[in-house]
């Protein structure tokens, strides 16, 4: 690679600004031409400017800006900071929570991860069983006082083991919204966009929203509770046989609207599946394999006699027949 001449590059970028300002005169253009011809380094520098600016030609402005600003908030220089800090995080993987809200980088903090469509079972040091659903990330922090599992993204199912440590260490699942403390038990925790959800299959757990000023609720077997970082919603009963079916590779739905079924199945598949609003409320019941979502989508379309259109494997649309 040729060594870049900084002075020439600076001049080139200034020329670019002047020439594209809408105020460039013929004399400017003549001087610019003279500048380019004066030195091969100038010419090279100008080529670099063109190389960059031509990348933008022909892009749709609205879409491009939306995509480029996807996770870029002006207040957040944190993202860059996170990148700089990554190597430190590798060394001290328990370092923590600081990068929590920087979604794309969760990856690097996680001890266990699953890709889309992948379900994996792990045995933790204390013998507890941890199942990760699709597209999930967790980090594990066990010490002398506490067994803490941080759910960074996705959904987990936990069967806690009998504590064998001489001193009892509570088993806690922590999400960005709060903590779920196991009271010897089987339960699952899932993170949604702006809340977390706990389903208890055996015994009980205690839920505390992170900013809830100490508020807590005990959730018993067969009960589900959703909570934000400030408060929890009313407890509800749920279908125990369906809710953990994913740990066995299925989802089971009972009179669920099509749009919701599609959302659930999409979790296990790359790309986007959309549904025409006209058929969004059609109800479906059944068990669908999450190991072959495309087959599930086809069978749904067949059952409901609706059409599937796919422009690319990434974009699948359900349409009325």
């Amino acid at each position: 690679m040729a060594q870049l001449n900084t002075k020439a590059l600076r001049d080139a970028t200034n020329w670019y600004v002047q020439l594209t300002s809408g105020e460039a005169t013929d004399s400017d253009r003549a001087q610019w031409k003279a500048w380019i011809n004066a030195d091969p380094e100038h010419k090279f520098a100008w080529q670099q400017v063109e190389e960059v600016t031509k990348t933008f030609i022909g892009l749709n402005s609205k879409t491009s800006i939306a995509v480029l600003n996807r996770s870029y908030t002006p207040a957040s220089s944190t993202r860059r900071q996170v990148l700089k800090n990554l190597s430190l995080l590798f060394a001290f993987s328990s370092a923590g929570w600081i990068t929590y809200k920087e979604k794309p980088w969760y990856h690097f903090m996680a001890d266990y991860t699953t890709a889309k469509g992948e379900i994996q079972t792990f045995r933790l040091d204390d013998g507890s069983k941890l199942v990760l659903n699709t597209d999930t990330k967790v980090s594990i922090h066990f010490d002398e006082q506490i067994r803490r599992v941080r759910l960074l993204q996705g959904e987990i199912y936990v069967e806690t083991a009998q504590e064998t440590n001489p001193v009892y260490r509570p088993f806690i699942v922590q999400t960005m919204h709060g903590t779920v403390t196991a009271l010897g038990t089987r339960f699952s925790t899932r993170i949604y966009k702006n809340r977390s959800c706990v389903n208890v299959f055996e015994d009980a757990v205690e839920v505390r929203p992170i900013d809830g000023l100490g508020d807590k609720v005990v959730v018993n077997a067969g009960e589900e509770v959703k909570f934000t970082s400030m408060l929890f919603q009313q407890k509800m009963l749920f279908d125990m046989s369906a809710a953990d079916a994913w740990t066995k590779g299925f989802i089971i739905v009972d009179n669920m609207p099509l749009a919701k079924v599609i959302d659930e199945l999409s979790r296990y598949r790359h790309g986007v599946v959309r549904c025409d609003p006209a058929i969004a409320d059609l109800e479906i019941s059944g068990a669908f394999p999450i190991t072959d979502v495309d087959a599930a989508l086809l069978s749904i379309a067949k059952t409901l006699s609706i059409r599937i259109e796919s422009f690319t494997p990434f974009l699948v649309m359900f349409k009325p027949a």
């Binding site: 970028t13 200034n14 670019y16 600004v17 670099q48 400017v49 190389e51 960059v52 600016t53």
Partner: peptide, 14 residues
Amino acid sequence: YIAKALLHCITMTS
């Protein structure tokens, strides 16, 4: 700003 951004982009790509 525009000149700086351009310079930054050139440095990042080369």
